[in-house]
Computed example of a mutant assay.
Amino acid sequence: MALVVGVEISDGELARAVGTGFDEVAGLLDGAGIGYVVLGADRADGATESLSPAIAGTLFARRTRGLGIVAAASPQRDHPYNIARRLASLDHLAHGRAGWLALREDRSTTLGQVARGSWTGPEPLGAAPLADAVTAARALWRTWPIETLTGTDSFVRHADHTGQYSTTGPLNVPTTPQGEPVVWWRYERGDDPGHVGVADVAIVAPGEIDTARAELPESVHRHVRIDNADLAGHTGDRADVHGSALPGGPTLADLAARDDVHGVLIRLDLAALPDFAERTLPALAAAGLVRLRVSGGTSTLRDHLGIARRTEPDLSRHRLVFAAS
């Protein structure tokens, strides 16, 4: 199965590129047919130079036609209501190409407090609270069906989510062109499958593929995260497409042959981006290992990934915001 391709670029590199080539990055990714870009992932590692992922994502959305834009955010820093509103707005601006990388912790700022969180204590956020935040955001994304603007029998409803991040709603942004943003989760060994199951995509390390296969629900797509440096031997129009995804680990051919791996997320230095986009990626696509977006295509991110919108949470019996006439 040809793999969807995502690219992760560090916050620090993007911040240093502002004014010196930043504007060219989005177009290069888009023109290469890359499926999506992840912005802000290294905030979980305490990035000292950092752009707002949502603001950077807005700039990328304005300069691209098909590239998916995945912005990182943590409920340790932002309440799910704010995350849901920000990501839904980005999804509208991008015409259905936005996603959320749900982080346990954002260590890029202390917010001027002793503890690192606005809504939680100083300890890193666990899988259970993160799953609750994702569920809360999903409920909010469904409170205002855009069909209410066309006179159909749809209603604005309260989210009425109860949990660590209890929220009433509704959200002040209607449902988006792809229904709602796609949700990514960084899988860690020991994560409860029920918690990871609230996400659409799980990012898996090469060494955790078999564990993830045994533990994660089939509904969650798995994208393996690797370094560009581990794709060895790129020369001309020929790439060593069997190069290891990780020294001693599976090759790209191994990953593409598995029915439980759907994509590959490549951590890429900006300096390596032109060669990767112009030489390596076409060779990998020609070998049938990766699946690029159709040139000039404008499908939603959800459509490109092949991920259907889930049915839960179902708000059909929740309280109406406005009484029916």
Score class of each variant (00 low, 15 high):
residue 232 A to R: 12
residue 232 A to N: 09
residue 232 A to F: 05
residue 232 A to W: 02
residue 232 A to H: 12
residue 233 G to S: 11
residue 233 G to A: 13
residue 235 T to M: 05
residue 235 T to H: 13
residue 235 T to K: 08
residue 235 T to C: 07
residue 235 T to I: 12
residue 235 T to S: 13
residue 236 G to N: 11
residue 236 G to L: 08
residue 236 G to P: 15
residue 236 G to K: 10
residue 236 G to S: 12
residue 237 D to Q: 09
residue 237 D to W: 00
residue 237 D to E: 10
residue 238 R to M: 11
residue 238 R to T: 15
residue 239 A to R: 05
residue 239 A to W: 04
residue 240 D to S: 14
residue 240 D to Y: 06
residue 240 D to M: 09
residue 240 D to I: 09
residue 240 D to N: 15
residue 240 D to G: 14
residue 240 D to L: 10
residue 241 V to H: 07
residue 241 V to Y: 02
residue 241 V to G: 14
residue 241 V to N: 06
residue 241 V to R: 08
residue 241 V to A: 14
residue 241 V to D: 08
residue 242 H to M: 10
residue 242 H to Q: 12
residue 243 G to R: 09
residue 243 G to L: 02
residue 243 G to P: 02
residue 243 G to N: 10
residue 243 G to Q: 05
residue 243 G to T: 13
residue 243 G to Y: 01
residue 244 S to W: 07
residue 244 S to N: 11
residue 244 S to E: 14
residue 244 S to I: 01
residue 245 A to R: 04
residue 245 A to Y: 01
residue 245 A to S: 15
residue 245 A to W: 01
residue 245 A to P: 04
residue 245 A to N: 11
residue 246 L to D: 13
residue 246 L to Y: 07
residue 246 L to P: 05
residue 247 P to M: 05
residue 247 P to F: 06
residue 247 P to N: 09
residue 248 G to N: 12
residue 248 G to E: 10
residue 248 G to L: 07
residue 249 G to Q: 10
residue 250 P to W: 00
residue 250 P to F: 00
residue 250 P to A: 01
residue 250 P to R: 02
residue 251 T to S: 15
residue 251 T to I: 07
residue 251 T to C: 09
residue 251 T to G: 14
residue 251 T to D: 09
residue 252 L to K: 07
residue 252 L to E: 11
residue 253 A to M: 06
residue 253 A to K: 07
residue 253 A to V: 12
residue 254 D to H: 07
residue 254 D to V: 05
residue 254 D to I: 05
residue 254 D to Q: 09
residue 255 L to N: 12
residue 255 L to P: 06
residue 255 L to Y: 02
residue 255 L to I: 10
residue 255 L to H: 06
residue 255 L to A: 15
residue 256 A to R: 03
residue 256 A to L: 08
residue 256 A to K: 03
residue 257 A to H: 04
residue 258 R to H: 04
residue 258 R to D: 13
residue 258 R to V: 02
residue 258 R to W: 01
residue 258 R to G: 06
residue 259 D to H: 10
residue 259 D to A: 10
residue 259 D to T: 11
residue 259 D to R: 08
residue 259 D to S: 12
residue 260 D to C: 01
residue 260 D to P: 01
residue 260 D to W: 00
residue 260 D to Y: 00
residue 261 V to Y: 01
residue 261 V to M: 05
residue 261 V to Q: 04
residue 261 V to A: 03
residue 263 G to V: 07
residue 263 G to N: 07
residue 263 G to Y: 02
residue 263 G to I: 06
residue 263 G to F: 02
residue 263 G to Q: 08
residue 263 G to T: 07
residue 264 V to K: 04
residue 264 V to E: 10
residue 264 V to W: 00
residue 265 L to N: 01
residue 265 L to H: 00
residue 265 L to V: 11
residue 265 L to D: 03
residue 266 I to R: 01
residue 266 I to L: 03
residue 266 I to H: 00
residue 266 I to T: 02
residue 266 I to W: 00
residue 267 R to D: 14
residue 267 R to E: 14
residue 267 R to H: 10
residue 267 R to F: 01
residue 268 L to G: 04
residue 268 L to N: 04
residue 268 L to V: 12
residue 269 D to Q: 14
residue 269 D to F: 05
residue 269 D to R: 15
residue 269 D to V: 12
residue 270 L to P: 04
residue 270 L to H: 07
residue 270 L to T: 11
residue 270 L to A: 13
residue 270 L to Q: 10
